[in-house]
């Protein structure tokens, strides 16, 4: 791994994302919209007679943390798509760039983008709905990191699929996280899921993060158990995703797709 080349790629995304108003706007538009809609809905629900105590905190906490996962995946996949759209993929891959360097760069840029988005959401949710994300305390850090890392894994897999099946599979880039959303118990406890789905849910790192978050918000503190599962599963998936990407990448080289994706 070469730090110099990673910096070069990070610089590239920095130019790319700061130069373009729509790209900057995209960092805030949907998250802020979601926050406002869900925040107001729960405010309304809380004024109803049968309220769940502290419901708004669970929901907004989930929403912001979900965004960490979603945007972490997006940062990786969209960075790759940007090169396809610009017909620049070939230029990048004929440069002496290792895959690990390519991904490290997208991870770094993704992290910065997410921190900015989360900062804005945190401010807004505090201002409008009196929800303090920092009430999660120090637990926020491991929760955040675990979602970030899971986003990397999902991002690598979706990127690999685009590489293998072409731009037609671009929809996967947007869609796959939403396939995970209902299963990973982002907005409700695992126990709400049908019995048969629960083991699948528990095999997803994010499930343990969201369960952990609810525990913390309910004043129970982050269980070492949740954290252990989240970290363990993340390690397994990260390695699995890297291997899967390698496989897709080699398939693409075998089928001559690297050159085709870059130029059509």
């Amino acid at each position: 791994m070469n730090l110099y080349r990673i910096t070069a790629l990070v610089l590239r995304y920095t130019f790319l994302y700061t130069r373009s108003f729509p790209r900057v706007l995209e960092m805030f538009f949907w998250p802020v919209m979601d926050l406002l809609v869900w925040g107001m809905l729960t405010q309304y629900l809380q004024s109803a007679p049968y309220q769940v105590p502290g419901f708004i905190r669970f929901l907004l906490g989930s929403m912001i943390l979900w965004d960490v996962l979603y945007r972490s995946q997006q940062a990786t996949t969209i960075s790759f798509l940007e090169d396809i759209w610009a017909r620049n993929l070939m230029n990048v891959f004929v440069a002496p760039v290792r895959l690990v360097e390519f991904f490290m760069a997208t991870f770094c840029v993704g992290m910065v983008k997410i921190l900015i988005t989360v900062a804005v959401l945190t401010l807004l949710s505090a201002a409008f709905f009196d929800f303090q994300l920092f009430s999660l305390g120090a637990s926020l850090i491991p929760l955040f990191i675990n979602l970030l890392v899971m986003g990397w894994s999902v991002g690598m897999v979706t990127t690999g699929m685009i590489l293998r099946w072409g731009q037609a599979s671009e929809a996967l880039a947007w869609g796959i996280p939403f396939l995970l959303q209902p299963v990973c118990a982002a907005f409700y406890p695992v126990s709400t899921l049908p019995q048969w789905l629960q083991p699948i849910s528990l095999a997803i790192p994010a499930t343990h993060v969201f369960e952990g978050m609810r525990d913390v918000l309910a004043g129970k503190g982050l269980s070492g158990f949740s954290l252990f599962y989240a970290v363990g599963l993340n390690c397994i998936y990260l390695v699995g995703a890297a291997l899967l990407f390698r496989y897709f990448f080699n398939q693409a080289r075998h089928r001559g797709l690297l050159a085709k994706l870059g130029t059509q």
Binding site: L11, F15, R87
Partner: peptide, 30 residues
Amino acid sequence: LQHCNFASAYTGLPTNLKVWENLLIFAYLY
């Protein structure tokens, strides 16, 4: 690849970057 390079009429460079920025990035990559 460190000592090779390639150009083609069929590839592009990120369109919203300035010319020198694109060149700088590749200079760093190499």
